[in-house]
């Protein structure tokens, strides 16, 4: 399971003199879900398109299951399913007809196609809507058919470019469950998003991309520990300012409470507890806070994902 499904080495791409990719490198383990996290315009979609064979890189190399994609041709296409960011379906056709068309394009044998369409529709929870025109579907249902189209030929690698943009929570959960199911079945998933909570919920490994470069990568916990800062959070009952502690950073207001970033969170936690008791302050909440990918991104780029 530890063989590399994808090896990306120093990938370069320039559009009209502007660098979209400035030497991106990362590895994706076979059977894992790998998150590519970054703000809009960071280079995620360009990377996805190069991996899917839609674009050619100006430099660097990409190997999928050990084969250089420039030389592999249809052999790689048979193992890869690409879900683009936009919904690319024919709205006037039924879900079944759309999937039949994609199945034919992926070269699924005619004898298997009908059965495969039934299976993928079951997988995305739309088996009962097979004959309905896509135009009658909600945004989330369209996204699910959009994903189903990439599963018809049983690919070993699914590349999903922001598959949950603008959908309802029910469809999002359905897609998450589906991805977990694919992972269980040994399918490698490369998942791009600018929602950090999606990466935290789904991915084993990740790379954070900004301005066409990978700024952090590794296993989720490892990245958080390596780049994140431990934080202690305190919220007083009366909403007032907590007592200052000697030898640590000054508290910063966050929402209704206050935080202190520190390398010694237990000492700060104990210090704040003692200080509040001494001053007879009533505490609503006092806890250590796990660093988030948002914090990591802020630390490494000086901006938040939303700012971008």
């Amino acid at each position: 399971m530890n063989n590399a499904a994808i090896e990306v080495i120093k990938l370069l791409k320039t559009y009209d003199g502007k660098k979209a990719l400035a030497g991106i490198s990362f590895n994706v383990k076979e059977g894992s879900c790998f998150g590519l996290l970054g703000p809009n315009g960071a280079g995620k979609s360009t990377t996805m398109k190069i991996l899917s064979g839609l674009l050619e890189a100006d430099g660097g190399s990409v190997s999928i299951f050990g084969r250089e994609i420039r030389k592999a041709g249809n052999a790689i296409k048979d193992q890869l399913g690409y879900v683009p960011q936009s919904i690319t379906l024919y709205e006037k056709l039924s879900a079944y007809d759309n999937l039949q068309f994609f199945g034919e394009m992926y070269g699924v044998p005619k004898s298997e196609l009908k059965q495969r369409i039934g299976e993928v529709l079951e997988q995305v929870g739309l088996a009962d809507r097979a004959k309905d025109e896509v135009t009658a579907f909600s945004g989330g249902m369209k996204r699910r058919v959009n994903i189903a189209a990439a599963l018809l030929h049983r690919p070993k690698l699914i590349i999903m470019d922001e598959p949950t943009v603008g959908i309802d929570p029910q469809s999002r959960n359905h897609i998450f469950e589906m991805i977990r199911g694919l992972k269980k079945a040994g399918v490698t998933v490369l998942y791009s998003t600018h929602y950090m909570e999606e990466v935290e919920a789904l991915c084993d490994d990740l790379a954070i991309v900004d301005h066409g470069q990978v700024i952090a990568q590794g296993e989720l916990n490892e990245v958080l520990e390596r780049h994140g800062t431990q934080t202690v959070y305190l919220e007083l009952h009366n909403g007032g300012r907590p007592p200052a502690l000697a030898g640590v950073n000054a508290p910063i207001q966050r929402g209704r409470g206050w935080t202190i970033e520190t390398d010694a969170p237990l000492d700060v936690l104990a210090g704040w507890a003692q200080a509040c008791r001494s001053a007879s302050l009533k505490v609503s909440q006092l806890e250590m806070v796990r660093p988030s990918l948002e914090d990591v991104f802020l630390i490494m780029t000086g901006t938040t994902l939303r700012d971008n």
């Binding site: 064979g53 839609l54 296409k77 683009p84 024919y90 394009m105």
Partner: peptide
């Protein structure tokens, strides 16, 4: 414009 042409390039077509 819908991205269909691009997507089809990822298939055997």
């Amino acid at each position: 414009e819908s991205g269909m042409t691009a997507r089809l390039r990822s298939t055997r077509m």
